[in-house]
């Protein structure tokens, strides 16, 4: 099995950064109380990052992907996670064949 040096470095970097975020709370447990706008901004980090990652695929690849993304978003509020993924994948395959 192959192990690329740059890939290994990337994995180790991601591991160190992740571990840092996991233990950092231990040292600020008494001091970190966010309120108001600061808390809203902090809470917005996960959705903001997730959306930024997929926006090019969802919005600028083509009509099939854009429509499938819209269908997936509707399903996401009604189905569990795996059902949502299934709807999205089936929708994109169907639309790519149609368009």
């Amino acid at each position: 099995m192959s192990l690329d040096t740059t890939t290994l470095l990337a994995i180790l970097t991601m591991a160190v950064v992740t571990y840092f975020t996991r233990i950092a709370g231990l040292f600020v447990a008494d001091r970190l109380v966010l309120t108001g706008r600061a808390k809203a901004a902090f809470d917005a980090i996960p959705p903001a990052v997730l959306v930024a990652v997929i926006a090019p695929t969802a919005l600028t690849t083509g009509w099939a992907e854009a429509i499938a993304a819209a269908i997936t978003a509707v399903a996401a509020f009604r189905l569990p996670l795996l059902g949502t993924v299934a709807v999205g994948v089936i929708a994109v395959v169907a639309l790519r064949n149609l368009i």
Binding site: I54, A68, T72, T84, V85, V92, V93
Partner: peptide, 14 residues
């Protein structure tokens, strides 16, 4: 359609 699975997964997570 597996390339779209992550996009769908992320939409579900969001």
């Amino acid at each position: 359609g597996a390339d779209f699975a992550f996009t769908a997964l992320f939409i579900g997570l969001v």
